[in-house]
Computed example of a mutant assay.
Amino acid sequence: MSHHEHDLGLSHDLPKIVERNRLGRRGMLSIFGGVGAAAALAACSSDSGTTISSTPEGAPPGGPGGGGPGGGGPMGAESDVEVAEGEIPEETAGPYPGDGSNGPNVLSESGIVRSDITTSFGDASGVAEGVPTTVRLKVYDLNGDDITVLSGAAVYLWHCDRNGDYSMYSEAIADENYLRGVQETDADGMVEFTTIFPAAYSGRWPHMHFEVYETLADATTYTNKLRTSQLAIPEDVCDAVFATEGYEQSVTNMEQTPLESDGIFSDGYSLQMAKATGSVAEGYTLTLNVPI
């Protein structure tokens, strides 16, 4: 039987990825290093034509921007203090990680290193439907008093689809592997993923999962991970998205599980609450600092 390239694993992909980096992928991605600088808060609205810039009340900013790390200027004393508030919490990967810790391991498959995770790869061909969403994460290394961006690390991001299902696990999409992907942090510690807005499923506040690895070569099995955590999504943005077609069940589910009773975020979420900008019509951008 002949083997397709996607059967050869990440080790097959790495030489191509290294070459692409040499030819300028880092330079292309570095344009995202200044994303999110000084975004002003706007009044919340569910109008699909209204742009929202959202930070939850009472929660210190977790996303790049403002005076915090990942903003438009060089990192100064104020941003050092904000990052030094603590490492992003270690959280469970949940029952559907796809990293080899509970069943399938998508990390070993050729094709998993990609920025657009809306489609499946390899033998699968499904496309996840939903409100377009960009996720930007900036990874920091908290090494004592020395706070630096963590370049050359790898981030594995995954989340449920518009129906609350997880690819590779949920019966309806067990043969798909979309909404899962790995990216290498650029010289500014940034990664970016193109995806769709996830559902609120029963028992959980709307969220995304991610793992951080020291290098891309390490991102082949969960045993090499440096940190596992989850990103929370602001309520006003969820309300706007869940008012659209396809997300109807999410309205009820989110009402039944507020942040204060969510099994992950109920003990605190200030470092995990993403900043959100955009609109239903134009899509949303979620940004988050990830100090580890």
Rank of each mutant, 00 (worst) to 15 (best):
V155Y: 05
P132K: 14
G67I: 09
F121C: 00
P64S: 15
T185K: 15
A172F: 02
P132N: 09
E171P: 00
S101E: 10
E85A: 13
E87I: 12
I117V: 14
Y156K: 11
G68T: 13
P74G: 12
G65H: 08
G65A: 07
G49Y: 01
Q183W: 03
V155I: 08
G66W: 06
P97C: 07
G111S: 08
T133W: 01
S120R: 13
E57A: 15
G152Y: 04
G68N: 15
V113N: 09
C160N: 15
S45P: 00
A154I: 03
I117A: 10
E78M: 10
D141M: 10
D141P: 02
G126Q: 13
V127F: 08
S53C: 09
N105E: 03
V135Y: 06
K138P: 00
N163M: 07
S108A: 15
G111H: 07
N105Q: 07
D175G: 07
A59C: 09
P69V: 06
D80N: 13
F121G: 00
P104R: 11
N163S: 12
D186W: 08
E129P: 00
S108N: 12
L150R: 14
G49A: 07
P132L: 04
G65P: 01
L157T: 01
G73I: 09
A84V: 04
L150T: 04
T118P: 02
A42W: 12
E87Y: 08
S101D: 05
P132A: 06
V106D: 05
S115N: 15
W158N: 12
N105Y: 03
G130R: 11
G181D: 03
I88K: 13
G130E: 00
G122Q: 05
S79D: 02
E90V: 08
P95Y: 09
D186Y: 08
A93T: 15
E82S: 10
G152R: 11
S110Y: 15
R180S: 01
T55Q: 14
